[in-house]
Amino acid sequence: MSDMDEMEDGSGIVKKFMFLNRKAPHGTVYALEGLEVVLITAAFDQDVSMVFTDDGIYQLMKGIDTKGIEVKDFSRTYRALEGYDIEKLYVDQASLDARGLTEDDLIVDVTVLSVDEMANLMAEQDVVISF
């Protein structure tokens, strides 16, 4: 149980983790795997932010129907994040614009940031992990 003891000892340390989601949901496994990592990180009581930029925005679309392509529709899992105390979700304004989308097209409440705001947020982090 030495691992557990170490975790106990380190339990006071909270780092700022940013997970950067940059890929469309179904063409590759990045989005789904990234989400799993986020859920696991949440179990360690860290300060987690999720950022959706570029094609990563497509992960958050309302009304996705994956029956025809026979993959799991994990877009609904983003709505469970609140229960995991992950409430900092950010979206890049320029990425929305380039895809003809607005906040209303997304399945969860997000904060839309400009490039400058996003850059500042990223600079504040201890760890940035990109999927």
Partner: peptide, 11 residues
């Protein structure tokens, strides 16, 4: 059915 995941015990 709602969220497509099995929740962690805390959740």
């Amino acid at each position: 059915a709602e969220y497509q995941i099995a929740p962690a015990v805390r959740v």
